[in-house]
Nucleic acid binder design. Sequence first.
DNA 1: ATAATTCTGCAATCATAATTGCAGAGTGAC
DNA 2: GTCACTCTGCAATTATGATTGCAGAATTAT
Lengths: 284, 284
Amino acid sequence: MDPAGPGIDWLDDIMAEQSLPKAQNRVAEVIIRNPQLASYAEIAEIAARAEVNSSTVVRTAQSLGFLGWPDLQRELRSRYLTKISTEDTLVQHGEHSSPLRAALTRDMENLRLTLEANAPEEVEAAIATLAAAKSILVLGHGSYAAPASVMAHLGATMGYPITLESRGGVHLVSSTNTLGPGDVLVVINIWRSIGQMIAAAEAAHQAGATILTISDMRRGRLAAISEHLLVVPSEGIAFFQSVTATTSVVYGLLAGMQAAHPERSRETIRRSQQLWKDLDIHLD
Amino acid sequence: MDPAGPGIDWLDDIMAEQSLPKAQNRVAEVIIRNPQLASYAEIAEIAARAEVNSSTVVRTAQSLGFLGWPDLQRELRSRYLTKISTEDTLVQHGEHSSPLRAALTRDMENLRLTLEANAPEEVEAAIATLAAAKSILVLGHGSYAAPASVMAHLGATMGYPITLESRGGVHLVSSTNTLGPGDVLVVINIWRSIGQMIAAAEAAHQAGATILTISDMRRGRLAAISEHLLVVPSEGIAFFQSVTATTSVVYGLLAGMQAAHPERSRETIRRSQQLWKDLDIHLD
DNA sequence: ATAATTCTGCAATCATAATTGCAGAGTGAC
DNA sequence: GTCACTCTGCAATTATGATTGCAGAATTAT
């Protein structure tokens, strides 16, 4: 553990590899100790704290392998800005218990577990598959129709060839029938699920489609035929399961899909008015 | 520390005093919706989201009494960023930064803020209203149809007289027309929204129905007629807003509703097989 | 409908932050 | 102690972001 308090592992790591000169070390020190500050402060502020000229700050950033200060700063932001502490919250609100509190803390825990349960490479691979898909079909029944519809809705708005099937029976059959090699079937959170859904997925798998499953089960018939499996806890309060973590995962996939297709993204930005309207950012 | 809690009440307050022109209002709302982003983004980013020229952003800042954008931004940082905690939270996960990670941490933060933004008494009152309702109608359009459908679906399965309306036009009118005293209208996250929706809510209010709003805006025409207002942040990654916190709040309400009606719950348990089937907990 | 007024976008201007060339200070080797 | 080399600060330069004058669009009052 870092004796200086909460530290920046990755920065520490970089620094371990090549040792910096004295002044630059001071700069790094300042950054490590005040990541929050460093994530938005301008060079002069950091320079002052390290009692160093601002050029030295730039050079430190460059020594560490970044293009310059703004580049390092971007990295800092993405790592620290959204950091939160669950314990913090628990302490602040003490024992007071309410249904809302229960739901929120439960879901925070679910999100945390999701973070632990899925390796970044796994996620990247899933995103790559989605990005390369000829077409995408999203299945989600019952409560899980909610995240499924979010995925289909936003994905389509981004320009992806993506559709939703939240119904069963004939509809399910005819939707999955057309799938073949190059197509991707996204199956969202089934719990030992409805037989016809597994059957549909297996048929699609046979036909050459790639299966991507988002589920709370690591094993099972579905897992067996899934090229990619993302695991999400779905424990809820009271009697119901929670789709919160699933929804969040869907956002992560969508963000990755957007990053994966610069050309579509550009197109997206060009049409941002329409996009944002669809996304409910619609202002008047 | 801000006694009113986290978030951007102060901005709301400023806006309440003097009303801004249309474009500037859009800018203000973008800021309120994405305080974290706004605290470090440059003007162009905000301008793009509000679909406005960057000069308008400057002018908005000035209209609100600040010197310019950097000035307003400083205020945002001091009010909002310090909340995130001055002591940095430990980085549990190595250097890898992925879209999933971004989505999850963002949503965890949203949940945390939700916890801070809603007083338990407020929530209890909302639940009491729901529990006493003669009938409940849930409205949610676009992305917000997802949490709305979860609420209607699970609420109905629990035995509540609750229905969903995610469509507009005639459907919206005829659904809201029947509301009167004793009925509750739940409006989920509307952003200054579709005029007809506000109109529908106002009509229902006139007719004596109680309005319960779940929104990311503390003020507005909707807030004005709402008996109960639950505030949820909705900042997302990439281009979209997140419905995660909203979903979680819905679970909280549902849990409270269940606890409020032991007799329905008992009935629920008796029919648990059916319930679980509907809830996707389907066990065999 | 028309005029007065306000608001907005564009593009030029201005301000500020980041970077780098250079000279001198510091450091270590012999 | 001297030389060779690296590092740092200063100041000039470059890049980038914020602001504002102006003309046209939109809105409001009459």
